[in-house]
Amino acid sequence: MKIGLIAAIAYSINVAYCASMGDEQLSWDNAPESIKKGVEAGVSFHLNNPDTTTEQSHEEWLKDKAENGWVYGDVKDLANKTHPNILPYAELPPEQRAKDHLFKAVVNLLKDLPDPDDYLELSHQLVKLQQQVLDSQKSTTVLTQKQVVGVGVRYIHKTRERFYDHLYGTGLTFEHGVTVILPEATALKFLGHTEFERVDANENTEPALVDNQVSENIEQKQKEERQQEDIIFDEIEAIKIMRTKDAVKEYIKSRYGDEIQENLKLADLQAIAIEKVHSFGVI
């Protein structure tokens, strides 16, 4: 799911860049599945080869196009599978090479984005953790190290006393030398760094936290995302009820700074405005 998300963002930025040059492209939602798979393949290539050059990125794109039956053509034609950029990288004009630079920059920027699937797994494990704690409290049994569900993680940086997690979205604060019990999927992320060590269940260490804080942070994040989705939905509905082309053009100009001179249909102008909302948010 993470690759699909990065692909959608990279593609939408490319659509916006093309629009700035007067080259209107289909939005991600309306793009054919074959195009989406090609973009996702490009994202996977960059994630697996972080030091790849833009020229190598273009060569990988050419390979994908060739495998799917695309050939060179003066205009991009989805039906006939022709594309003017099916050329050696050195023969591309500078504005077309810029697309490869943009694509690489976006993927490198978002490569550490948490995978949405991880949140689902994390939530599931947190429910199990919380239920075990509740069951333990009801039976008046003391929660021992052997009864703790999860993996012990200890922060051991040599100079810093605490670590604030802004990388994986948990919002946790780790104190030096203090053991924190985390769901396995979350613990493994931190244990990939040398500043953390695993604490085995048989160590005589009282865990500092059985992680309700992570659950609260995720719930808050999900609430904020739903609120943002509601704002975007309302904005798109407002665009859809605009009844004149001038009104839509003025909206695009005032919100996103783009002045559209072409004599387009009202529906086409609304589609451009909606795509800008998806790409840049509500401004």
Rank of each mutant, 00 (worst) to 15 (best):
G171S: 05
E175Y: 06
T141R: 15
V148R: 12
V148G: 04
Q145S: 14
V149E: 08
V151E: 12
T173Q: 07
T159V: 15
V151M: 10
V149T: 09
G152I: 12
T186P: 00
V148Q: 09
A187W: 11
P183D: 00
Q147R: 08
I156H: 05
A185Y: 03
V148P: 03
R160F: 11
G169V: 03
V178M: 05
I181A: 11
V148K: 08
R154Y: 07
T173D: 00
P183G: 01
V149Y: 11
T170D: 06
T173K: 06
V151Y: 08
L143I: 12
E175Q: 10
L182H: 02
L182K: 04
T173A: 01
I156N: 11
H166A: 14
F163I: 12
D165V: 03
L182M: 09
G171Q: 03
F174W: 03
V180W: 00
L182N: 06
V178K: 13
V178W: 07
E161G: 03
V153E: 06
R154H: 06
T141A: 15
Y168D: 10
V142Q: 11
T173R: 03
G152W: 10
P183R: 00
H176E: 08
T140D: 14
H176I: 02
V142E: 09
T179H: 04
E184F: 05
Y164Q: 12
I181Q: 11
T140Q: 15
L167S: 11
R160N: 14
H157R: 12
T170G: 07
E184C: 09
V149K: 11
T159D: 15
A185H: 02
V153M: 06
T144R: 15
R154C: 12
E161H: 01
D165P: 05
Y164L: 05
V153Q: 02
T159L: 14
G169I: 02
L172P: 01
E161C: 00
L143A: 01
E161P: 00
T179I: 05
K146F: 03
G152K: 13
S139H: 06
L143F: 02
L143M: 09
A185V: 12
Q145D: 12
D165T: 07
K138M: 09
K158E: 09
K138Y: 05
V151Q: 10
V153P: 06
I156W: 05
F174P: 06
T173G: 01
E184G: 09
K146G: 04
T159P: 04
Q147E: 13
G171I: 04
R162P: 00
D165Q: 08
Y168M: 03
T159F: 14
I156D: 13
E175D: 10
Q145H: 10
Y164V: 12
K146S: 09
L182C: 01
V153I: 02
Y168A: 02
R160E: 13
Y168N: 11
V149A: 09
V153H: 06
T186G: 00
G152R: 14
H157Y: 11
A187G: 13
L172Y: 00
P183E: 03
G177S: 01
G150I: 13
V151P: 04
G152D: 11
T170Q: 05
Y168K: 07
L143Q: 01
A187Y: 10
K146R: 07
Y164D: 07
Y155C: 09
V180A: 03
Y155F: 15
L167V: 12
V149I: 12
K138T: 02
V149P: 02
R154M: 13
L188P: 08
A187P: 07
I156A: 11
V153L: 03
L182T: 03
